[in-house]
């Protein structure tokens, strides 16, 4: 993996060092969303930015090697479905839709377990945001625009007129 496409060697090397750290930071933001500023959306965006960095530095094929498109589409739906299932489990266990059925306890202040269902909800949202933001970026940047028909004629006309 060297000079085929993508940015310069410096960017590629820095990307190789940073991608794991950025992803890890995103996961931290996701998991500790109920204690520190952040949460599912912010963490998901940071995780997605790791993949977007790879796309920018190496190009889309390398990014697809890290997260294949089919897997990203599956994860996208899976995250949203998990969120719905957590909400439905509240109805199942506690009798009210979206009820916090795991429960909170005053002893567990500032621990991971202090917020009940918020942590799994954040993880589900993070998964959804990660995969859908990555997909949006890759789809829009890797789109091959083929202008044909009317548009082609219009561009050619514009090229000929000074």
């Amino acid at each position: 993996m060297a000079a085929e496409g993508g940015m310069s060697l410096v960017v590629k090397t820095v990307t190789r060092w940073l991608k794991g750290l950025i992803f890890l930071f995103g996961m931290y933001i996701m998991i500790y969303g109920h204690l520190t500023p952040g949460g599912g959306f912010a963490g998901g965006v940071i995780c997605a930015s790791a993949f977007i960095l790879i796309t920018l530095a190496y190009g889309a094929p390398e990014a697809y090697r890290h997260l294949p498109r089919g897997a990203a589409e599956k994860l996208d739906s899976f995250g949203a479905l998990t969120f719905l299932i957590i909400a439905l489990l509240g109805l199942w266990f506690a009798g009210v839709f979206f009820r916090n059925f795991i429960g909170t306890s005053p002893e567990s202040h500032f621990r991971l377990t202090s917020a009940g269902v918020i942590v799994p909800c954040n993880l589900a949202i993070g998964l959804k945001v990660l995969s859908s933001l990555f997909l949006v970026f890759v789809m829009l940047s890797a789109l091959h625009i083929i202008v044909s028909g009317e548009g082609r004629r219009r561009i050619e006309r514009r090229r000929h007129t000074p």
């Binding site: 589409e73 996208d76 739906s77 479905l81 719905l84 909400a87």
Partner: peptide, 22 residues
């Protein structure tokens, strides 16, 4: 409890369809 289902069911369907339709 049917009231929230009016939103939950179509959302669940909408997310479920792309997962299995391939």
């Amino acid at each position: 409890h049917a009231i929230p289902m009016m939103v939950v069911l179509p959302l669940a369907g909408a997310f479920f369809i792309p997962m299995v339709s391939r």
